[in-house]
């Protein structure tokens, strides 16, 4: 109920938008294969839900495996780049290059190398997801307040203590920004890899629907992808709220003029 209240303007707007589209499609009398109205899409979704479920589950599974692999990779890469200057010098250009190779080109190559199994799909989603996490974490680690850094050094902290007790906790909010971006990419990544060869999944369903001119089913798939993305994003938000709730940023370190010491 709380969530409904919080997002009531957003939800209201979306519903209004759907109603406008519905009316427009009916007034213009567009055929289903050209542009199905929202009501057709929704009824198709419910009528074929049993058939859809295995596809949804396949995509969910792929998304999570890919996102987790990508997050771990991003986390490790971010830390290594931060801690070892030599890795930063060598690795940074490589990471940028990895983001400039179009997935569409990379995917067939990975299929040639790894076959049609889970492996090439996870690699692609991982490659898409790790970048925002690594970069956000790296920036967060670098932005540690110099005063706090100096305090740690004066108090005799080792490099390792400085990393675990200061830099890493300091970078948590940045890490979660990266995670949220990665989460939204992950569902897209999963669907794209399914296009390129899979037995099940929303990507497969979409390809079939498209080639059969079942535009209504294409829209069903789009709707499900959007909902899935929102769910993954929501999960990351929930984790963030649990772990980062006490990170309320203070104004830059001035003591405030309080007369009650």
């Amino acid at each position: 109920m709380n969530i409904l209240k919080k997002y009531r303007i957003t939800i209201g707007f979306l519903i209004a938008l759907l109603i406008i589209v519905e009316i427009a499609v009916r007034v213009l009398d567009l055929p289903i294969w050209l542009f199905p109205s929202p009501s057709v899409v929704i009824s198709e979704l419910f009528q074929t839900f049993d058939e859809l479920l295995p596809h949804i589950l396949a995509t969910v599974k792929l998304t999570f495996i890919g996102l987790i692999a990508g997050s771990l990779l991003g986390f490790i890469v971010g830390i290594l780049l931060h801690l070892l200057p030599i890795v930063h010098k060598i690795g940074y250009p490589l990471i940028l290059i990895s983001q400039n190779i179009p997935t569409i080109v990379l995917a067939p190559l990975l299929i040639i190398w790894f076959g049609f199994g889970l492996m090439p799909k996870v690699v692609i989603i991982g490659l898409v997801c790790f970048f925002p996490i690594a970069i956000a974490l790296l920036d967060g680690l670098r932005q540690t307040t110099p005063e706090l850094r100096q305090y740690f050094q004066m108090a005799g902290a080792t490099k390792w203590q400085q990393f675990w007790k200061l830099e890493l906790p300091f970078a948590m909010p940045a890490l979660f920004s990266g995670l949220k971006i990665a989460a939204t990419y992950s569902v897209m990544g999963a669907v794209i890899t399914e296009w390129l060869g899979a037995k099940q999944g929303l990507g497969v369903y979409m390809t079939f629907a498209q080639s059969a001119f079942r535009t209504d089913r294409v829209f069903v798939a789009i709707t499900l992808i959007v909902v899935l993305s929102l769910c993954v994003f929501g999960i990351i938000r929930l984790i963030e709220e649990r772990f980062v709730h006490s990170y309320k940023k203070e104004e830059p370190q001035h003591a405030n003029n309080s007369s009650t010491p």
């Binding site: 005063e147 200061l166 906790p169």
Partner: peptide, 17 residues
Amino acid sequence: ESGHISYMPQHHCLLPW
């Protein structure tokens, strides 16, 4: 060599988390 003194900085430097 660090670690031989205890230190109180100008700004409190408490960790917000």
